[in-house]
């Protein structure tokens, strides 16, 4: 029960209070670049969640099984980015061959994810918080879900922006960033919610 509770706290923290995009600023490029349509937001969000969880499953054992015993922890950035790049490539190939419909909806986003700082970020974050494997996976899942929720909300906001008459200098990126600022402001409202639910 204690474990379930602590896992729930990690999950909800990742989704709401420490939302990856809106409070940690990881994965801004896909967040602003792909959030124009609801469909692509969901696709990108699902792909990121999937890769995050799998990257954690791959990098956690590498860090604690290989880098720590050899005392080369400082190599983590290089090792992780290689593993993530390799893994994304592998998933893309497998998906293309065996799951063409899934590839069509998710696969197109995969190459984008290799250089997405959210994926490398979540693996490094798990290390700095010293989570065990289960906690790391839950944290990655929460981070991915949080990313997806932020993208879905934001695609709704942006669809309204399309029809607005915006001053010329603000068109494009500036107004998008300002809209993101308002959404981020809304997420500050989740501040005490975790403590409220679990009475920590």
């Amino acid at each position: 029960m204690e474990i379930a509770k602590s896992l729930m706290i990690i999950l909800l923290t990742g989704i709401l209070t420490e939302n990856f995009v809106l409070s940690k600023f990881l994965g801004i490029c896909p967040f602003l670049g792909v959030s124009k349509k609801l469909n692509s937001s969901i696709g990108m969000g699902a792909a990121v969640t999937f890769v995050m969880v799998c990257a954690t499953l791959a990098t956690w054992p590498i860090y604690y099984g290989i880098l720590v015993p050899l005392h080369i922890e400082y190599m983590n950035t290089i090792a992780f980015i290689l593993v993530i790049a390799l893994f994304v490539q592998l998933v893309e190939m497998v998906m293309k061959k065996y799951m063409p419909p899934l590839y069509k909806s998710l696969g197109v986003y995969l190459p984008l994810i290799t250089t997405n700082c959210a994926v490398l970020g979540v693996t490094l974050l798990n290390l700095s918080k010293e989570y065990d494997l289960l906690e790391s996976v839950v944290n990655s899942f929460g981070a991915g879900l949080g990313f997806m929720i932020a993208m879905i909300i934001f695609s709704g906001v942006r669809s309204r922006l399309e029809t607005c008459d915006i001053p010329k200098a603000l068109r494009g990126a500036p107004i998008t960033l300002m809209a993101a600022s308002i959404v981020s402001l809304a997420f500050i409202g989740f501040g005490g919610v975790i403590d409220g639910i679990f009475g920590v």
Binding site: I175, L177, I188
Partner: peptide
């Protein structure tokens, strides 16, 4: 706060534009 970051960057890009 994060919200301010988005806002300032938006304004700065608008000014540059």
């Amino acid at each position: 706060l994060p919200a301010g970051g988005f806002f300032v960057l938006g304004v700065v890009i608008a000014v540059v534009n």
